[in-house]
Design a protein around this nucleic acid. Structure first.
Lengths: 223, 223
DNA sequence: GCCTGTCTTCAGAGTCTCTTCAAAAAGTCG
DNA sequence: CGACTTTTTGAAGAGACTCTGAAGACAGGC
C-alpha cells in the first residue's frame, strides 16, 4: 500500500515514515504544498496523510485539487489545531478521516487500516479514468465533478471504452459487445457512430477532454 | 446485541466480558484508545462501554469521534473518578448514561437494557431526508412540518427510497421489496408507477421538492 | 351486505431513446 | 489533385418507456 505523507516537520515526517515502513507500507514524504501536488499528479497513492498547515499553502488546497480529479486516494487530515472547524472543512472536502496532533503512530496505522477496510468492503468501488468517474451502482457519471446524464447505450459504451483503455476497438467489436450476438451478420454498424457522437458531445459539453480518438479504417481508442 | 468494552484494566475487562456474554451479548474488548477507534471505524456496535481514563488518550475523544460520525451506538461512560465534571462532559458529548466505578455488573446490564429500550421502544428515532421526516412508530410523515397522509404502499415506497437514497432502484427491485418474492415472474410492474405518482403528488402538494428523479430505462433515484 | 378507501389493471397520450438514411466532411492513396 | 473510402453530422421515423386518468377489483369497518 502506497502512502504519501505531507508534513513539513522533518522530525515528525521521518518518524511516520519509519514507523509505517516497518508496518509494511511504501512511504513517500512531501514537505511542501508544491511537492505534494507534484507527486499526486505524477503518481497514484492509496493513502494521503495530509498536514493542513504547510509553509507554502493550505493543505486543504491539496485536497481540493485531489478531489477535483476524482482520485480514489483515501485521505487522512492531520492537524495540530484542535479546531473542529478545520476538521469539518476537511471532511466536507472529501477527506475520509482526521487525526489531531500529537498522535500515536499506532493510531495512524489503525486509521489507515480502517479506511482500507471501508474501501474494500463497503462496495465503494468507482470506475475512473482521468477526470471521468463512474459509479456502477447508481450509473452516475461525473466529469470534473459535474454529473452528466447518459442513456443506456452511451453508458455501456463509456464503460466498455474505459475497460479497454489504450486498446483499439473496432466498430464490430463494439457492436457485438453492446448488442450481443444477434448482430453477427449485420451489414452495417452505422448506428455505433451515433452513440459515439452523443457520448463525445456530452463529455466535452461539461469541459471534459475527448479521450476517444478515431483510428481511421480501424475503429476507436480511448487514451 | 454487540457491545464494545473499552477498559484498560485487564481484570475488570474480563469480568465484564464474562458476565455480559452469559447474559447473551456479543462482547469485544478494547484496551487502548486507538484500539477502540480502530474497532469503531471498522465495525458497528449497539453499545459502547467506555472508560475515560485510557493509557494513550482521553476516552472522551473516542466519544467525540463517534458522535461526529452520526453513529447510532449507545454509550455508557465508565469512570473511576467521582467527578461530576467528567460525567457532565461525557453527557454533553452525547453519552447516554454513566456509571461510577466500582459498580455491580447487574447494574451495568440494567443500564444497557435501559438504553436499548429507549432506542427501540420510545420511538425516538426518526427517519428523515431533507424536509421530509418520518416517524416509523406512528407512520406519520411530515414535509416541511405539514403532515401528509400516505397509504401503506406509498409509505413503504417512501421509506424504501430514503433508505436507498442516491441509488437507482429499478421497478423490479421496488416490486420485489414491496410485494415480496411472489412477484418473481410478473410480466409487468406497471402498478409501481401509480404509487410513485401518488407519492410524488402528495409530497409536492404541500410544497416539498420532488426528490424522486426518473432514470429513463432504468428506474428511479431519490436525491 | 353496503360503503369507503386502497390497490391494481388498462388504454392513450406524451416523452425519450434508438436506428436509419442521406448528405457533408475528413482521411487515404495513386 | 482527384477518386475513393471512411467518418461525422443532422434530421426524422420507429420503437420503447413513462405518465396520467379512469374504471374495475379487493379488503376492512359498520
Amino acid at each position: 500500500m502506497k502512502v504519501l505523507i505531507v508534513e513539513d516537520n522533518l522530525q515528525l515526517s521521518e518518524n511516520i515514515t519509519t514507523y509505517l515502513s516497518k508496518e509494511g507500507y511504501v512511504c513517500t514524504p512531501a514537505y511542501t504544498y508544491y511537492e505534494a501536488v507534484d507527486r499526486l499528479l505524477s503518481f497514484s497513492y492509496d493513502i494521503l496523510v495530509l498536514d493542513i498547515m504547510l509553509p507554502d499553502g493550505d493543505g486543504l488546497q491539496v485536497l481540493q485539487e485531489l478531489k477535483s480529479r476524482q482520485n480514489n486516494t483515501g485521505v487522512i487530515i492531520s492537524s495540530a489545531k484542535n479546531s473542529l472547524e478545520d476538521k469539518l472543512r476537511g471532511l466536507d472536502l472529501g477527506a475520509d478521516d482526521y487525526i489531531t496532533k500529537p498522535y500515536h503512530l499506532p493510531e495512524l496505522n489503525a486509521r489507515i487500516k480502517a479506511i482500507y477496510r471501508r474501501r474494500n468492503f463497503e462496495g465503494n468501488r468507482l470506475i475512473s479514468f482521468n477526470e471521468i468517474s463512474i459509479n456502477p451502482d447508481t450509473m452516475e457519471v461525473k466529469v470534473n465533478q459535474s454529473p452528466i446524464i447518459l442513456t443506456r447505450k452511451e453508458y455501456e459504451l463509456l464503460v466498455y471504452f474505459i475497460a479497454n483503455r489504450n486498446r483499439v476497438l473496432t466498430k464490430q467489436s463494439i457492436a457485438e459487445h453492446l448488442w450481443g450476438d444477434h448482430m453477427d451478420l449485420a451489414d452495417s454498424f452505422d448506428f455505433v457512430y451515433q452513440h459515439i457522437k452523443n457520448l463525445r458531445k456530452k463529455i466535452t459539453q461539461v469541459g471534459g477532454n475527448d479521450y476517444i480518438s478515431t483510428i481511421y479504417g480501424l475503429g476507436y481508442r480511448m487514451n
